[in-house]
């Protein structure tokens, strides 16, 4: 993990105080560990920023975008906040549930797709919003879902 260590040092140098780099560092560590943060990843970040592992865990668990369980190769997130709800997000969620055969919050058997609900993604004008691997698909209607899942499984 010497590479990760050095990358974190580089990010740390951007800030007046190195501790500010803990979030970018966690993002780097999550990438380096296949999309989630095993304890070892938290230790690496702590080591690189001269923090206690617990301090790093405290920060990491505060945010929704850090994962503490393995995730699928793809990440499908559906916004169900007010504007999307009014635009039929429920039907989109149902569509994914039946296409993937898993409830939100789970990862498909084949480990291909992690499917979860998210709070307002800031696409309310183009609802319902679906975010695939961190890129917005606006709007996504129930009828678009089968094709979308197809595309993910294929890629």
């Amino acid at each position: 993990m010497a590479k990760l260590y050095n990358r974190i040092q580089k990010v740390g140098a951007k800030y007046p105080q190195r501790r500010s780099a803990v979030m970018p560092a966690l993002r780097l560590a999550q990438e380096a560990h296949g999309g989630w943060l095993p304890p070892e990843a938290l230790r690496d970040v702590a080591d690189a920023l001269d923090l206690a592992p617990a301090e790093v865990e405290a920060v990491a668990t505060f945010y929704d975008m850090f994962n503490f369980e393995p995730v699928g190769r793809h990440l499908v997130e559906v916004c169900t906040n007010l504007s999307c709800a009014l635009a039929g997000a429920k039907q989109v969620v149902d569509a994914f549930e039946s296409e993937l055969g898993i409830p939100p919050g789970e990862t498909s058997e084949d480990g291909e797709v992690t499917f979860r609900l998210i709070e307002c993604a800031g696409g309310c004008g183009y609802a319902p919003v679906v975010v695939v691997d961190h890129l917005y698909r606006e709007p996504t209607r129930p009828e678009d879902v089968p094709g979308l899942v197809e595309e993910l499984r294929g890629s």
């Binding site: 923090l51 206690a52 617990a54 301090e55 865990e57 405290a58 668990t61 505060f62 945010y63």
Partner: peptide, 10 residues
Amino acid sequence: EDGQLVAVDR
């Protein structure tokens, strides 16, 4: 300043 006892989650 041992940073070992923390609050986790939100």
